[in-house]
Write a protein that binds this DNA or RNA. Structure first.
Lengths: 115, 115
DNA sequence: GTAAGTACTATCCTTTTTGTAACAGATAGC
DNA sequence: GCTATCTGTTACAAAAAGGATAGTACTTAC
């Protein structure tokens, strides 16, 4: 498990690239993170994530294509749409938790370094 | 721990953003992943990661500024430079491992889905 | 002096991403 | 009819990122 053969490294690098292909970019992980607190409407997501509708629409389509987010149209007064994390998206939990922890620790480190 | 208050969610989202600020983008995590197999020279990194020298130079500077990579000039025949992960960069291990696992599983899932 | 290797930097250009603003279709309230 | 809300889309523009190609500087080898 601790061996660093050429093959195992190439495999690891490929896996990282694969992951970045799906959830890389500026918004994907942020959207998923925001959606972890529950289903959200389009404008709601736009506000909470601070993302313009144009980009949001594109990002949500890509997330949906990759099976990470589901889109449900609700038959309400003004028609509304609910975006929600899929079961499969939970497989990203480790990634998200690790990034949350790191970001939190890193910020602490930076702040302490300044003071 | 399982509460989803407004504050805890905002905190989590901020942490994700912080992490992305440091290791987001197309190359940072790939470079770190490549460097996990040991120190590398500039051209070596360029070849292994498939990144052009111009971008590589910029990315390495940013990684160095954030304390994730160290740069050592070696007094060899033709002068060489060794790039190496810092101690602090190991704090990203959980993130990298989680992403490696996910990328690997996701690829398996996709391949199976096609066959 | 010529070629080759290392580590970049500079220049130019293309692609991708992101943002802004406006607009469309549907429905409800006034 | 006018306005407002919700969900997007479209058109246009700006910015960021990325790639290709050379070129610089230094050193060793021939």
């Amino acid at each position: 498990m601790k061996e660093h053969t050429i093959e195992s490294c190439a495999k690891a690098n490929l896996a990282i690239r694969d992951t970045l292909d799906i959830v890389g970019g500026k918004w994907k992980l942020i959207l998923i993170s925001v959606l972890r607190s529950g289903k959200k409407g389009f404008n709601e997501l736009s506000r909470e994530a601070g993302i313009s509708p144009r980009i949001l629409s594109k990002e949500l389509q890509e997330l949906e294509m990759n099976g990470l987010v589901s889109r449900k149209v609700c038959d309400t007064k003004p028609i509304t749409v609910q975006y929600e994390l899929t079961e499969y998206s939970h497989s990203l939990n480790d990634v998200l938790v690790a990034m949350e922890k790191w970001g939190y620790q890193h910020r602490k480190r930076i702040v302490q370094g300044i003071e």
